[in-house]
Design a protein around this nucleic acid. Sequence first.
DNA 1: CTCCTTATATATCAGTCTGATATATATAAT
DNA 2: ATTATATATATCAGACTGATATATAAGGAG
Lengths: 185, 185
Amino acid sequence: MANEKKIDCVILGLLSHEALTGYEIKKRMDTALSYFWGASYGSIYPALSDLVARGLATKKEYSENNRKKLIYTITDDGRDYLKNWLALPVEKDELRYETLLKLFFGNEKGPAQAMTHIEAFEKKIENRLPYLLYAENILTEHLEADPTHKYYLLTVRFGIKTYRTYLEWCGEAKALLKKNQGNAD
Amino acid sequence: MANEKKIDCVILGLLSHEALTGYEIKKRMDTALSYFWGASYGSIYPALSDLVARGLATKKEYSENNRKKLIYTITDDGRDYLKNWLALPVEKDELRYETLLKLFFGNEKGPAQAMTHIEAFEKKIENRLPYLLYAENILTEHLEADPTHKYYLLTVRFGIKTYRTYLEWCGEAKALLKKNQGNAD
DNA sequence: CTCCTTATATATCAGTCTGATATATATAAT
DNA sequence: ATTATATATATCAGACTGATATATAAGGAG
């Protein structure tokens, strides 16, 4: 029962909330989960077929205005599989920030180049923060409507707190680079 | 000149500081870079051979007490390649936190299970933070000794700030779960 | 009322990377 | 002596990304 593929678990998790198409699963990944998890179509569609083959989900073809859709529903076995995975200890929390990587090797190109990367990072975070704040408002208002909202809210608050810290760090990092730009080297 | 493989860039970055063996490169990944980047032997060794084949690094066999080592040195072309990559805009900053993923689907197993994951996360961060604080002290003391230290310090400060925010969030998240544990559901 | 763009929807694949495994020697501890 | 840990290199199955392909629907511009 070991070696649970993460893609299977995320999909089953999303299907535990509601029946979805592969396309809708991808949309959830790119919105609600985007700042702590990601997945591509190249993993989603094969995983869905596999989940059906293993009896963890079922597939139904729907037609909406002549438009065919493959809607996937979690089975009882699928829910058991999900619950089993949820109870296992976390294997890996991983951050992979190219910005920090380029900054780490910043001496090769100097402070001006490093500054550019920090400013780009700052802008990206500033642009994303409003979406998280908006999500926090909506979720806080309708907290009682759905028991899953409480857990969603916890992850949103994580995003808000870390993003604000990132912005603080950007300010400090820029100050340090400016301070050392005049003297030394 | 597009499509720079990240593994090539990290290795060249580390080699820009000093000549290293594949084993030493892996050690750097697991210490100095570990909280914002990672790589496995399965990518490091093939990448090193490839860098030599492309003239971006050179390989020399050393013998220390009958013990053979393959030491890699960056070439001028390698340094140019690194500089070119450093000037390109960042493509992706990615967080992949299984803890948040399990928390997001926390309703399936309930608040007690979610609490367990948060506490495990908290402990992991608490254990790692001292290493970052130690690194900050050393780097601050010897800031003038090496121009690369300044950039290293910036990434360490990022780690310290975000880790402290994580711990704050853990406290708030646990409080929210406890508060809602009595009523509702 | 046609053209263009964007959204919906599924699918595949080359290239990349991880995690595991294998092999071998050196050093330190018990 | 033996066991464990550190040094050191290498390979590979399996997993995942990013790109690409295909096709329909809907909305807006001219």
